Amino acid sequence: MPAEPSTKATAWAIFDRIVADAAPAGVHSNPWLRSGETLSYRPDFRVLRKLLGVPLYLDAPSTTGVPALALDVWLSYELRRAGFHPDGVWPRPTDPRIMPGAIANLLDGLPQKERQLIEHRLRRSMKGVAGSSASILGKHYMKQVDVVMSDWDTGPELLISTKRMDSSFGKNAANRVEESYGDAKNLRLRHPLAALGFVYGLRSTILTSEPDKAEWLIDLLAKLGTEDDAYHAVALVMIDYEAEAAESPDKEVDSVESAETDALFEIVDVETAAVDEALAALPDIAIRHDTVPPALQPARFLATMANRVIDISPVTRHREARRRRACAAED
C-alpha cells in the first residue's frame, strides 16, 4: 500500500501547483518597475495570499511547520522572479528542496535512466548532497536557515530567516525577536558579504487584541534592520484572515524546525484531484500593508536583498537578475 501523505507533503503538493501556475513553463514575471529615476520592486501578493491559505485549508498547526513554510515558498518564488537561478534558490520548486547547482547540472546532463538511478540514491541516502532543509555554519554554531542562495563555489550569497506567529503574542513575541537577533549576529560574523534578511509573519488580530504589544513589536522589528552587523533588511507580513488557525497555543515552530519528523524526502503521491480540490477551496487571505511602516514593507525588503546580491557580485554572475533589473517596466 502506498504511504499516506503527511500534512507537510500535501502542503508541498499544493504549494508547488500554486507556484507552477504563477510561472507557466517556468517563465516568471519581472517584478522590477521604473518610475523616472526610481527603481522599485512589485511583489506578487496574489501568490502569497494563496500560499498563506494552504495551512488554513489543511487545518495545519504550527507544529507541522506548514504555516511558516508558506512564507519560505513565497520568498524563494520571488527570488526566482527577480532572475536568480531556480536551482540556486532554496527551497527549490521541486524535490529535492535543497541541492547544490553543480548536482542539478549533472542530473540535467544525464540520460533519463541514469538520472533516475542517481535521483533515487539522492532521495534515500545522500544527506550531504541534498536535503529538505539547509544548515549554515555561523561564527559559533550551525543554524538552519529557511531561504538560501548558496553553492560550493560561492558559499552563502543570501540567507533569510522567517518566523510566523498567529496567536500567543504576549508569551512568544519577545522570544522570537531575541532569537533572531542572536542568529543574525552568528551568521553575519562568518558570512559578512551574504545578504542577510528576516521576515516576520504576524496575524493582524494582534492589532486589536494586544495593541501595545503590536506597537512594541513593530518598533523592535524596525530597529532590528538598522544594526550595522545584523540584518540588511527586515520585513513584516501582516496576515488578515477570518478562520481560526489550527494553533499549538504554547509553542511556535519554524518551518525548518518542525516537530513533525522529516525524512530526507517524503516519497509519496498526492493525487492531482486533491490538489485541484484544495485550490478551489482556499480561504480568503488579506495582507495588511496599511499597518506596516515603510521600513518593514515586503517590497522594500525584496528590493534590498536582490540589489545587495547583484551589487556585490562580479558582473559575470547572476546575468538574468541583472538583465531583469535593467529591463524594468515603466510604472
Rank of each mutant, 00 (worst) to 15 (best):
H289G: 03
P211E: 03
S150P: 00
S125N: 08
A246D: 10
L236W: 04
A243T: 15
V315T: 15
Y141W: 11
L187V: 06
I312W: 05
Y141S: 14
R190Y: 01
T7Y: 00
W32I: 00
V253W: 01
A184P: 05
Q112W: 05
I285P: 01
P249L: 13
D250N: 15
I136D: 01
K139I: 04
R324I: 04
L302F: 09
L282E: 07
A23F: 02
D153W: 13
L224C: 08
V253S: 12
A328W: 08
N30L: 02
G26F: 06
W216K: 10
R176G: 00
P192C: 01
N30E: 04
V47S: 03
I312M: 05
M238T: 08
V129I: 15
A286W: 02
D276R: 13
L79S: 12
A9N: 03
H232I: 01
G170W: 05
I98E: 11
V177Y: 05
G170L: 11
R325Y: 08
V147F: 03
Y231V: 07
A235H: 10
V19Y: 02
L71M: 09
E227S: 14
A246F: 01
M1A: 12
A328V: 07
E178L: 08
L189N: 10
G155T: 12
S258L: 02
F301D: 04
A299T: 03
Q116S: 13
P100Q: 11
A102S: 15
D212A: 11
Q112R: 15
G88Y: 10
A274Q: 07
V234K: 11
E178F: 05
P293A: 02
L33H: 11
V66H: 04
V270C: 02
D153N: 15
A20W: 06
I136K: 08
A60Y: 03
R42M: 09
D269I: 05
L107P: 09
F198R: 02
P5S: 05
S125H: 09
A173C: 09
F301V: 04
Y57R: 09
A3M: 07
I287T: 06
D151M: 05
A173N: 10
T63F: 00
L52G: 02
V73R: 15
L106K: 14
S62M: 09
L193C: 00
F169I: 11
R46H: 04
R325F: 06
F84D: 07
D153C: 09
D153A: 13
G101V: 15
E244S: 13
L189D: 13
F169V: 08
G88D: 11
L282N: 08
T94E: 14
A68Y: 06
R34C: 03
L106H: 12
D276F: 01
A134P: 01
S150E: 12
D183A: 10
T63Y: 00
S255C: 12
L224R: 10
P211G: 02
A82N: 10
N307Q: 14
A134M: 13
S76G: 11
R324T: 07
E4M: 06
E320K: 14
S248P: 09
G36L: 06
K223I: 00
L75R: 12
E215L: 07
V268T: 14
I239E: 13
D331A: 13
D331R: 15
P5D: 05
D219M: 03
L110E: 09
G197V: 00
V147D: 04
W152S: 13
L52A: 05
P31V: 03
I136C: 03
P96T: 10
E260V: 11
M165C: 06
